[in-house]
Nucleic acid binder design. Structure first.
Length: 937
RNA sequence: GCUCGAGUGGUGGAAUUGGUAGACACGUUGGACUUAAAAUCCAAUGACCAUUGAGGUCGUGCGGGUUCAAGUCCCGCCUCGAGUACCA
């Protein structure tokens, strides 16, 4: 009987599917365990071996927890809205829904081959109207909420409206835009509906506003900050420019502090928490008001170093600052306008490239220093960002390097305020224990003392106050794309109104063209049926739009992160058509116990989803405000790219050893054309791509050796390895175990098939304990103490290692175990049965098959996990190494049952030997029970 | 620049709380079986010195330190990776 993995794996995959073995129930006597993977985006390229890494690890945990008696929820689905499907639609005209379904089908087929224990009855697809109905519903909840800053909680906007009606907005504690006007209750009540709605938009948690956005002309859409890397778009690497546009945003900034503090409650990797902390970017300092000379306005600045206020020699505003116009003197007007025009056309990338170029312009205006009353010039400079703090800075050239450089460049005054520090060459930016000088009442104080004192003085004199600022900015929520969730909003008098909950989902309309319209409207501008009939509450053709009852619907769609910001809650109750998640389900499952996924989502999905969770928690729909108790980042599996080297300007390709004397360009070749010793199969290359058909290959030692480089796995780099190939040759169980064996789960590692035979051999060896040829070996005889020891050692090690997520050492332990049992020729049921259960999370098909063959009729999946029995393990006598004077070593045999005193005595009995070895007697003996004994003379 | 990681044989990696560094696997070499190959099994495999039998020295990026004992802890560097960047 051979180990026929093909037949075995197919058989059990069918069995699990038809029996719904892994269906999770929302009611159970067992304790619950919710283990979640980050669901994939179903791309046209299919899965590569990197995708399943995290899924395998989480599946091992899921299966392990089932063995331990937990009611396990382990769902899977698809994040199926997104740009590639839309771009494919633009090229081919095929509806994205169609290509997406084809991709999903393929993904499912690939996933099934690896024996995952997903509960597929709970599958979600974010592009399914049954799902995005609730994404839209959550959007409306955000639209209809505001952030109450005194209670630090989101509330329905109706409460804010009643506050306004009662007392205006003077006393209201609500997170809103900076330049919101003040009004009394009677004024509010007198406002028109349009005026009211415009004011409310400044408070809603999702709002429409005209803001500076990151516009990517190549993609034809705006992007959020986390979608831009090094000034270019994350997808495609296209340039991004700043542009003022009317856009939907999410008021995540209101939650900055809670998002920061929540990190202390969750068991997430420190590096990931640190990334989120940096992204949120809390700074503690003060805001200070500077009176403008000959102007009734004040400039508010934010600084983390209010202690340096006596070093201020000028103020500097962002070019976009609201007061620029009123400060600029007539003589300077032209210069300032030119400067602003120049700055605003720069792309993000150009701006970054010009960091070292100091630029700015004097407005001609002055401000008054609050303490010295000296007049200080007001400048404009693009090193001040409008989007951070107040968009205005007090410049302290002696204490800040950028201010110093700027002052030097424009020959502005520099006041040294640090005792004994030379600031003629560079600013003093450290926060050392240096005393302040030229600083009036702060003279003689150090940094800490001065900050306390100055904030007191600022508040006492009403010049300013202690303040906290965050880097985290509101997230742009609209995208000018087709393949996303429609935003359930229509426009009446240019004011947005929600389409009520009961009319959801607002289904994505069909369009003929997926590109933006010629007049620059998003693709939904091509839809013919995209108007809202307010009376009949339904979508009607655009040509019926009138000014009374039928209005245009929002043309933008939601960004990719909308659907993924709450899917973990939907899995709890996918069949619920009345709520996004039912009370019973949420009370039972509450939160994710274990979340496995890549850390590339640190400042995107993992931040947005925490934000939505907090909103829905505040509004009373959820039980916890952090949805993932524990999170683990699996590392990325990288590709091992192969290169051939073309001699410049020729069709000659040089083997790697020959390239150093020539000018060559490396060209990717497919990794499947290369063997394990980096030798290229030249015949295959010739038929692989026509560029190589007539190429000349210059060999070394009769071979063509390729160059190798580790890179991200991608189709364009020809370094993708398809898991199907591995499943064909070795089987899904081998793939699972090999991916775990590659190294620590959290580490990045290049894919290398070289070691896979070791793992496959392990399964074959294991099989041989059951079958020798066709002879069934398993017997009911009593197992030897030795073999029981091996088993219990393995049980102990594997259990501990699963708990600490060290799956690679689990696989090693299995290998040691089977090697030893093979040597012992042990085929006792007593030994093999617990081992199968132990192995079942790792190689589930294999374990199920042999479980059945030794006479069990039930699935192994719910068998209790074997318990470690220490009595099977203990040896009576163990050898201990003894080091002597830190140099010589010998071993002594000691019984484990001895006390420390008895061990010491035993060692002293060795005195004779010791003195023979060293010529002196030991003075001190260090004994660590169960470990090592050390003697010092 | 700032923040966070990581550096161990030819390779991937073990060493969980400071306690015999290199488990396990790949690769390599030799052997058994075979007409041969594959498959399978056995043995050797950190470096250097020595070898009849042993044995010895060095060794976890570099330089110091703490300790009877350091891959592990402390101080100072070097290199690589990730994130972030006019954030006031």
């Amino acid at each position: 009987m051979k180990y026929d993995f093909q037949q075995i794996e197919k058989k059990w995959q069918t069995f699990w599917a038809s029996n719904q073995t892994f269906k999770a129930h929302n009611k159970s006597e067992k304790p619950k365990f919710y283990i979640l993977d980050m669901f994939p985006y179903p791309s046209g390229a299919g899965l590569h071996v990197g995708h399943p890494l995290g899924y395998i690890a989480s599946d091992i945990i899921a299966r392990y927890k089932r063995h331990q008696g937990f009611n396990v929820l382990h769902p899977q689905g698809y994040d199926s809205f997104g740009l590639p499907a839309e771009q494919y639609a633009i090229q081919s005209g095929q509806h994205p829904a169609k290509t997406t379904q084809a991709n999903i089908k393929r993904y499912r087929k690939q996933l099934d081959r690896m024996g995952f224990s997903f509960d597929w009855t709970r599958e979600v697809q974010t592009s399914d109207p049954k799902y995005y109905r609730w994404t839209q519903w959550i959007f409306l909840k955000l639209f209809n909420s505001y952030y109450n800053t005194s209670k630090d909680k989101a509330f329905p906007i109706t409460e804010l409206i009643s506050d306004f009606e009662r007392e205006g907005n003077h006393k209201v504690f609500a997170h809103c835009e900076k330049d919101t006007q003040l009004f009394e209750a009677n004024e509010w009540n007198a406002f028109s509906e349009v005026e009211k709605e415009k004011i409310l938009l400044k408070y809603r948690l999702t709002y429409l506003s005209k803001t500076q956005v990151n516009w990517c002309p190549a993609l034809g859409t705006v992007l959020a900050n986390d979608e831009i890397v090094n000034g270019v778009s994350e997808r495609g690497g296209h340039p991004v420019i700043r542009k003022k546009m009317t856009q939907w945003s999410m008021r995540i900034s209101a939650f900055a502090n809670r998002l920061l503090e929540g990190l202390d409650q969750v068991n997430w990797p420190d590096s990931l928490k640190e990334m989120q902390r940096n992204w949120i970017g809390k700074s503690i300092g003060a805001s200070i008001f500077f009176q403008i000379k000959d102007n009734k306005n004040k400039i508010e600045i934010f600084t983390t170093r209010p202690d340096t206020i006596f070093g201020v020699t000028y103020l500097i505003l962002a070019p976009e600052h609201g007061l620029v116009k009123s400060i600029t003197t007539p003589e300077k007007e032209k210069e300032v306008e030119d400067y602003i025009a120049k700055v605003s056309t720069k792309s993000e990338r150009e701006r970054q490239a010009e960091v070292k170029n100091i630029s700015g312009v004097f407005t001609g205006g002055y401000a008054i220093h609050p303490f010295t009353k000296v007049k200080i010039p007001i400048w404009i400079g693009d090193y001040v960002l409008a989007s951070y703090g107040t968009g205005a800075v007090m410049a302290v050239p002696s204490g800040d390097q950028r201010d110093f450089d700027f002052a030097r460049h424009f020959k502005l005054q520099i006041i040294n305020i640090f005792d004994g520090i030379d600031v003629s060459k560079k600013a003093y930016v450290e926060k050392g224990n240096i005393k302040l000088i030229h600083s009036s009442f702060l003279n003689g104080m150090n940094y800490k003392e001065a900050i306390q004192k100055i904030i007191l003085e600022l508040e006492e004199n009403n010049y300013g106050k202690g303040a906290v600022h965050f880097k985290l900015r509101d997230a742009i929520f609209s995208r000018q794309r087709y393949w996303g969730e429609p935003i359930p909003i229509y426009f009446k008098s240019e004011v947005p109104y929600p389409i009520s909950e009961k009319n959801l989902p607002l289904e994505l309309p069909d369009v003929e063209k997926y590109l933006p319209t010629p007049d620059g409207k998003p693709p939904l501008g091509n839809a013919k049926n995209w108007a809202w009939d307010e009376v009949n509450e339904k979508v009607v053709p655009n040509n019926q739009i009138n000014h009374k009852t039928i209005f245009p619907i929002e043309l933008n769609t939601m960004p990719g992160w909308a659907g993924s910001s709450w899917y973990f809650n939907r899995y709890m109750d996918t069949s619920n058509h009345k709520q996004f998640v039912g009370d019973e389900a949420i009370n039972y499952w509450k939160e994710v116990d274990f979340y496995m996924g890549g850390n590339e989502h640190a400042t995107g999905h993992l931040l947005y989803s925490r934000f939505w969770q907090k909103v829905l928690f505040d509004l009373g729909y959820l039980k916890v405000d952090e949805y993932a108790k524990k999170l683990v980042n699996q590392g990325m599996i990288l590709g091992n790219s192969a290169f051939v080297y073309r001699k410049k300007g020729t069709q000659k390709f040089l083997s790697k050893g020959l390239i150093k004397d020539y000018e060559v360009e490396p060209i990717h070749v497919d990794v499947s054309l290369v063997n394990s010793s980096n030798q290229l199969d030249i015949n295959k290359v010739r038929s692989w791509q026509k560029d190589f058909k007539n190429a000349k290959f210059i060999l070394e030692d009769g071979k063509y050796i390729v160059g190798r480089e580790v890179e991200k796995m991608s189709k364009s780099k020809h370094n993708v390895v398809n898991p199907d190939e591995i499943c064909d040759t070795y089987g899904g169980d081998t793939l699972r175990m090999y991916e775990m064996f590659l190294g620590p789960i959290e580490q990045d590692k290049p894919w290398n098939t070289a070691g896979i035979s070791g793992v496959h051999n392990f399964l074959k060896k294991f099989w041989k304990l059951f079958y020798q040829e066709d002879h069934f070996l398993v017997n009911d005889q009593v197992a030897s103490a030795e073999s029981l020891k091996v088993v219990h050692q393995t049980i102990k090690k594997v259990t501990e290692d699963i708990e600490r997520l060290s799956f690679n050492t689990c696989v090693s332990s299995f290998m040691i175990c089977i090697n030893e049992l093979t040597a012992l020729k042990c085929s006792n049921r007593e030994v093999l049965e617990p081992l199968l259960v132990l192995l079942s999370p790792f190689a589930p098909h294999f374990a199920e098959e042999l479980w059945m063959r030794i006479g069990n009729s039930n699935s192994i999946a719910f068998e209790p996990f074997p318990k470690f029995d220490p009595s099977k393990l203990e040896e009576k006598v163990k050898e201990y190494p003894v080091s002597f004077n830190g140099r010589m070593r010998f071993t002594i045999k000691l019984s484990l049952e001895l006390t420390i005193e008895q061990i010491k005595e035993e060692v002293m009995n060795e005195e004779k030997t010791l003195s023979q070895l060293s010529g002196s007697l030991p003075k001190k003996i260090i004994v660590v029970p169960g470990k090592i004994i050390n003697i010092v003379t």
